[in-house]
Design a protein around this nucleic acid. Structure first.
Lengths: 220, 220
DNA sequence: CCGTCCCTCCCCCGTGCGGGGGAGCCCGTC
DNA sequence: GACGGGCTCCCCCGCACGGGGGAGGGACGG
């Protein structure tokens, strides 16, 4: 019996691409498609797929919430493969924490996509397969924001610093961040200074730019 | 004779999606694929496609440069359809200025993608077809960064203000922007104030965030 | 020809921001 | 028990930033 996959992505083009890649395999079958996270649960109940290939960023209900909802409400949930554009997307890690079984970059080659679906279906939890690491390295060579990513990786922000950077990237002032985190403004200033130092940023604007460029936060 | 299309995108998945959508049509044929802008020119010479469906953001040579190079070096250049994720991507407009014949959103429905390719092939220059406008409006309903986009649309930044915002989004200080544009810092402050007012931003950081969220600038 | 818009530059002024330095607390590890 | 790292808070200080207001010149269209 073939592996049955449900495709969830808000872009029809990506769905068509996944469908074309997966249906070329004799042992894989596309059970259905959904354009947002809200449609996933009823479809999973109805179609009972083995694997859900799901985008993180979607309207209505994102991949993280959809993952949580699936694991909470469906008796025998399918394996969840998170499909994303950025390898350092914090949402991806959130999705994995929420219970997703693996993640896959959209720029992966067809063979690797197929491979990932098969592994996931077999119960392999491929959180950081070698192929993904290699992909990230390769892509870093050819272009894009490798510098910003390298910066964030070297940075090793603490949990608190990451929170502060995320709030900075939403446009909050130090005072607002302090209120949000229920600490003093001096504390926030300490964290901000640490973030700036670690990112090699001169001011908060540059830090926010690095956050966007690295995929630590992302538009949408 | 069918319309022959060359697909150019760095993501194999997007290429597979376009191929699946287009090859389902009897009158459209995919002549070939390329993963970056540098490969386009030899392929066009070799394959002589009617239409090139091209991503803007690519490694090695982006869609703008590839468009320019095509029109400069190829005797009877194919029609160029720019495929993009963001409708307000300034790079798209640059590509159109560079000579592209139309643009298409990746989140368009298959039928609209097919329609666009046919129109382009017939010589219709679909810069802002109604379908694209409607798509933008529709998508704005369901989620995403519609607020930021709407903000930028209402904003109507002048050319100079756009330049200043772009430099802000690269982390430059007022003094640095002044040096870059060869004007006084007071002038830059005027422009920055205008940008902040038009975007409803409190400080440059919020303005830069809006720039990213709206797709006015984009990571990568 | 006059109004409007854009770009340019100028003033004053308050303050949020960021650098530098120090300090106490908790919680791990060695 | 000592040490280090992370989180918390405090001081002083200089400055870039942003608000408010004004002003001149060039281009374009009514």
């Amino acid at each position: 019996m073939p592996v049955r996959v449900l495709l969830v992505d808000d872009e029809p083009l990506v769905r068509a691409g996944l469908r074309a890649v997966l249906e070329a395999q004799p042992d894989i079958e596309v059970a259905g498609e959904a354009a947002d996270g809200a449609a996933v649960i009823p479809l999973v109940r109805q179609l009972r797929p083995d694997v859900v290939a799901m985008d993180v960023r979607m309207p209505l209900l994102d991949g993280i919430e959809a993952t949580r909802a699936l694991l909470r409400t469906v008796a025998e949930p399918p394996k969840i493969l998170v499909v994303t554009t950025f390898e350092n997307d914090e949402y991806v890690y959130e999705a994995l924490r929420a219970g997703a079984d693996g993640f896959l970059l959209k720029r992966a080659r067809p063979a690797e996509i197929v491979h990932a679906v098969r592994l996931i279906a077999e119960g392999e939890s491929l959180l950081f397969p070698a192929s993904v690491r290699r992909l990230a390295a390769e892509y870093g060579e050819s272009g894009g924001n490798r510098a910003a990513r390298a910066e964030l990786e070297r940075a090793r922000l603490t949990e608190r610093e990451g929170e502060v950077l995320r709030l900075m990237a939403r446009g909050l002032s130090n005072a607002e961040i302090a209120a949000r985190l229920v600490v003093g403004t001096e504390t926030v200033k300490s964290h901000v200074s640490a973030v700036l130092a670690k990112l090699g940023a001169r001011d908060r604007t540059q830090a926010v730019i690095t956050a966007y460029e690295s995929g630590f936060v992302a538009p949408g």
